[in-house]
Amino acid sequence: MDQELEQLARKLGEQLAAKGLVMTTAESCTGGWVAKALTDIAGSSGCFDRGFITYSNEAKQEMLGVSEDTLERHGAVSEETVREMTQGALDNSQANVAVSISGIAGPGGGTSEKPVGTVCLAWGRDNGELVIGTYSFKGDRDQVRRQAVITALNGVLKIID
Rank of each mutant, 00 (worst) to 15 (best):
E80N: 13
G88V: 04
A98M: 06
A105T: 13
G106L: 07
F52L: 05
E84W: 01
G108C: 10
L64S: 03
L71Y: 15
S100R: 01
G46K: 01
E62T: 13
E84M: 08
G117S: 11
A105C: 14
P107K: 13
E79N: 10
R83W: 10
G51N: 00
S45T: 09
V99L: 02
C120S: 14
P115N: 09
L121R: 04
K114G: 14
S44K: 01
E68N: 00
I104C: 08
D49P: 04
C47F: 08
N96W: 01
M63F: 15
E84G: 06
V66E: 03
G103Q: 06
Y55W: 13
G117A: 07
G117P: 14
G124Q: 06
G124E: 03
G117F: 07
V66T: 03
N92L: 04
E84L: 08
A98F: 05
F48P: 00
G43V: 07
V97P: 00
S93V: 03
I101W: 02
A89C: 10
A95Y: 01
Q61M: 15
L90S: 05
V66W: 00
C47Y: 08
S45Q: 02
V66M: 06
S102N: 12
T86F: 07
D49Q: 03
I53E: 09
G75Y: 14
R50V: 11
G106I: 07
G109W: 11
V77I: 12
V99F: 01
G106H: 09
K60Y: 14
A59G: 08
A95W: 01
D69T: 07
C47T: 00
E62V: 15
P115I: 09
R73M: 15
L71M: 14
M85C: 07
G110D: 09
A122K: 05
V77D: 06
N57K: 08
N96V: 05
I53A: 09
R73F: 15
A122G: 07
G103F: 05
M85K: 07
S56Q: 08
S44G: 09
Q94R: 15
G108A: 11
N57L: 10
V119K: 03
R50E: 00
E79F: 03
V66Y: 01
S44I: 02
A89Q: 06
E79Y: 11
G43F: 12
S93C: 03
N57Y: 10
G109D: 12
K60V: 03
G88L: 04
A59N: 09
N57C: 11
N96Y: 02
G109L: 08
T111R: 09
E84H: 06
T54A: 09
D69H: 02
P107A: 15
G46N: 02
T86I: 10
N96R: 02
K114A: 15
S100E: 07
G46V: 05
I104Q: 04
M85G: 02
G65I: 02
R50I: 06
Q61K: 14
E80D: 13
D91M: 12
E58Q: 15
S102W: 02
G108Q: 10
T54I: 10
E68R: 00
I53T: 14
E79W: 07
A105D: 10
S100N: 03
Q87M: 12
T70F: 10
V97C: 00
A89I: 09
G124S: 06
T54Y: 11
V119R: 04
T70L: 13
V77P: 13
S45A: 11
L64V: 00
G108D: 15
S44Q: 02
A98H: 08
L90V: 01
F48Q: 03
L64Q: 00
